[in-house]
Design a protein around this nucleic acid. Sequence first.
DNA 1: TCTATTGTCCTAGGTAACTAGAACACTTTT
DNA 2: AAAAGTGTTCTAGTTACCTAGGACAATAGA
Lengths: 127, 127
Amino acid sequence: MEFRIDRGSGVPPYMQVVRQVREALRLDWLKPGDRLPTVRDMVKSCGVNANTVLKAYRELELSGLVEARQGSGTFIRAALGSAPPEAMEQLRKRLHEWVGEARASGLDNEDIDALVRTVLNDKGEQR
Amino acid sequence: MEFRIDRGSGVPPYMQVVRQVREALRLDWLKPGDRLPTVRDMVKSCGVNANTVLKAYRELELSGLVEARQGSGTFIRAALGSAPPEAMEQLRKRLHEWVGEARASGLDNEDIDALVRTVLNDKGEQR
DNA sequence: TCTATTGTCCTAGGTAACTAGAACACTTTT
DNA sequence: AAAAGTGTTCTAGTTACCTAGGACAATAGA
């Protein structure tokens, strides 16, 4: 599990860590029992302060997703996988194709992001 | 043009305004000559400070997207549309279908967001 | 037992961003 | 000419978050 902290995005680093862990959980990249990087590892690899990492891990712990064991590490506690792997793969494949078409039409990542957001909002408000 | 400021997302309000304007430009919701909401309108509708709006508008002006005319308003100057409207509609339609399937598989907005991000990153790194 | 590793806590300081309130300059409308 | 609306500037204060550095507590392994 590697973390990428994007300074300048405006999103607080500790929040980026939280999101990336949740994201990995949703995609089944992390499973119960897995150990997250050490606080000190994170400090070295991401250049953030120990307190920042701690804040992120604590927030994850409060929401019940991880469990911190002093002296041993921080471990995944719950799963977030929301669909069976086969369905996930199918969806991923089709999305991949769609992105290919979008790129062929001249859209860049930001264009695609904007489009996705509006479609999600449309659908979201129809509930 | 309506703006929604999400406090608690960690993203500075002024940046959210900038992004939403750029997003509207990308989707052809805003075109050259259109006038953005008044600074004072934004203050009322979004509950942010005039300085915050000003900062957002100034950033947009520095990038050449809008033009501020003292006494009259802030106007769109350039277009950002990256694909012809027909292609855009086609892409939107197909994406809409895909989102429908994803929802049917049990994914929520955050799941979908995570999936989109990874696919974009995959493709992005293959360049 | 001893040592290294790990999570945790504390204090102090700094920066970016937002808020509040007032005033000024220019344009448009009446 | 006058009034209303608009962008702009300024100062002061507040808050959230990050940084730095050190120290403590519990666990795992030699």
